[in-house]
Computed example of a mutant assay.
Amino acid sequence: MSHLLELFEESDAPRPEIRDASHNLADIVVGDVRTVLQSFPDETFRTCVTSPPYWGLRDYGTEGQIGAEKDIRDYIKDLVAVFREVRRVLTHDGTFWLNVGDSYTSGGRTWRDVDAKNKGRGMSYRADTPEGLKPKDLIGVPWRLALALQEDGWYLRTDIIWNKPNCQPESVKDRPTRSHEYVFLLTKSEKYFYDHSAILEPAIDPKQKAKNRRTVWNINTEPYPGSHFAVYPRQLVRLCVQAGSQPGDRVLDPFFGSGTTGVVCNELARRCTGVELNADYAELARERLLKRR
């Protein structure tokens, strides 16, 4: 736990609860990211890799949770404020890798039943159709957020398509099944650390050289056998961490969830700090980090 406590040595702010995951390089701070990040000193982390709660898609059962705002504009505003603090605690050459999914308007439905194939689908609330949109409209959440972050001062360097070859089937008959999400690479400064050689695409033909990583990443989803139902795959995180940091660097995940970012940082010898609002998920992450999987 000592390496995390160093983050607060120069701060007079109250220290949030810290749950130490012994024998690994990741620590978990339990609390609301909107206040926790304010306790962190400037320019502490080399990179940030995270996937915040998607708007209107999950009910994590926590009062005041980000993602449960009634208005999409409030969701964007909340995340812009959180990521403004992320920008402050990033080093000058730091990068920010943001995974976020899209959704459709609810069409006036006020709840959603549990699906046997997707237990996390059940919700006790449904957000209203955003102003200006119609029932069945694709909302465009990722780009709304990315452009708002760009306007707030981030450099928006690229969008990455995370293609899911093993995506969940959909019963829709009037549009294609959605099988992708976005990952945005944003930076604090015009010049920043990016290790392109660490994530080269291997050549299929041994006579050819490896090539620069493209913007479409084909990565299978990777369910974790725990109670957290929104886990992004380790390979997705691994590429971001490898490109955005070096061994020994600090990595931040302000929406730690089940701890995938910490697991990957352990594999790659990076020190990781995760912030998680839900104490149950924090405990799940702690157990997972100790098991190293």
Results as ranks from 00 to 15, higher is better:
Tyr155Trp: 10
Leu149Ser: 01
Ala148Ser: 15
Lys164Thr: 09
Lys188Cys: 04
Asp174Phe: 15
Leu147Pro: 07
Gly153Val: 03
Ala148Lys: 01
Val183Tyr: 10
Val172Trp: 10
Glu170Leu: 11
Asn163Thr: 02
Leu149Asn: 05
Glu170Phe: 07
Tyr182Trp: 08
Asp174Ile: 14
Asp159Val: 11
Arg157Gly: 03
Phe184Ile: 02
Leu147Ile: 15
Cys167Gln: 10
Leu147Thr: 15
Val183Thr: 14
Leu156Phe: 15
Pro169Glu: 07
Tyr182Arg: 06
Gly153His: 06
Asp174Lys: 13
Asp159Phe: 04
Pro169Leu: 13
Leu147Arg: 11
Leu156Tyr: 14
Arg175Ile: 08
Trp154Gly: 02
Tyr182Asn: 13
Pro165Arg: 02
Arg157Ile: 11
Leu149Gly: 00
Lys164His: 07
Cys167Trp: 12
Asp159Thr: 10
Trp154Ser: 00
Val172Ala: 14
Asp159Asn: 13
Val183Pro: 04
Pro176Trp: 12
Ile161Trp: 02
His180Arg: 03
Glu181His: 08
Leu185Lys: 00
Pro165Glu: 00
Tyr155Gln: 07
Asn166Leu: 01
Leu147Gly: 12
Trp154His: 01
Asn163Glu: 04
Asn163Tyr: 08
Asn163Ala: 04
Ile160Ser: 03
Pro165Met: 02
Leu145Gln: 00
His180Ser: 11
Arg178Trp: 10
Arg178Thr: 05
Glu151Ser: 06
Asp152Met: 02
Thr177Phe: 07
Trp162Ile: 00
Ile161Glu: 05
Pro169Tyr: 15
